[in-house]
Amino acid sequence: MERSVIDRGRRNFLTGRRVSMPERVRPPWSRASSIAAACSGCAACVPACPQHIIALDASGRPALDFSASECSFCGACADACPEPVFDRSVAAFDHAAGIGADCFAGRGVVCQSCGDACPETAIRFRPRLGGPALPELAADRCSGCGACVAACPAQAIAVGARPSEAAHA
């Protein structure tokens, strides 16, 4: 789900134009609705994360940055939070990885970094004639940890909403 905010650039602010902002990836066992309802912005989850992937976004709410590491599902963020933001009875993440057009293999360069990094083996490689094997993501096996995002040298992998047919119960 995308949010819309007023663009505060001079011209767009005066005309009231809105800019669409993509939904940020939130810490495990939390949802945008629980963060909006209960998060006080205390940032206790930020230093608690041993992977250092949690930071506060522009609105002062916790968001994940998978560019350097992945989520290990240790639960330290949930343990540190004094508010009822985290619910361990739901799936850790409601997102999955997606492989974009900038993937090296799609451009003829041999690379299997994402598959090597995936702890769930959700990324497999389909051989093809005349070029390197192409990655295929099984969204139903993807835990959303972000290991492949951090490992991709082309920055071709991003996390997004999990396809409805692959949603976890």
Rank of each mutant, 00 (worst) to 15 (best):
F13S: 01
G16F: 06
G16N: 02
R17D: 10
R18D: 02
V19T: 11
S20G: 10
M21R: 12
P22L: 11
P22F: 09
E23L: 05
R24C: 13
R24P: 14
R24N: 10
R26E: 11
R26Q: 13
P28Q: 13
S30I: 10
S30W: 08
R31D: 15
R31A: 14
S33W: 12
S33T: 12
S34I: 14
A36G: 10
A37Y: 15
A38S: 15
A38I: 14
C42I: 11
C42D: 14
C45E: 07
C45S: 11
C45D: 08
C45Q: 10
V46Q: 14
P47M: 12
P50V: 11
P50Q: 14
I54N: 14
I54L: 15
L56Y: 09
D57Q: 06
D57M: 05
A58R: 03
S59E: 14
G60E: 09
G60Q: 10
G60F: 09
R61G: 08
R61Y: 14
P62Y: 02
A63C: 05
A63M: 08
L64K: 11
L64R: 08
D65E: 14
S67Q: 04
S67N: 04
A68H: 15
E70V: 06
C71D: 02
S72E: 02
S72R: 07
F73V: 02
C74K: 04
G75D: 04
C77Q: 03
C77F: 08
C77T: 04
A78P: 04
D79R: 13
A80Y: 04
C81T: 05
C81M: 03
P82W: 06
P82C: 08
V85K: 03
F86W: 10
R88G: 03
S89D: 11
A91I: 03
A92V: 04
A92K: 06
A92R: 10
F93E: 03
F93L: 09
D94M: 10
D94W: 10
H95L: 09
A96H: 04
A97T: 01
A97C: 01
A97E: 00
A97I: 03
A97F: 02
G98V: 15
G98M: 15
G98F: 15
G100D: 08
A101L: 12
D102P: 02
D102R: 04
C103R: 08
F104A: 01
C111E: 02
Q112V: 06
G115N: 00
G115F: 00
A117Y: 03
C118L: 01
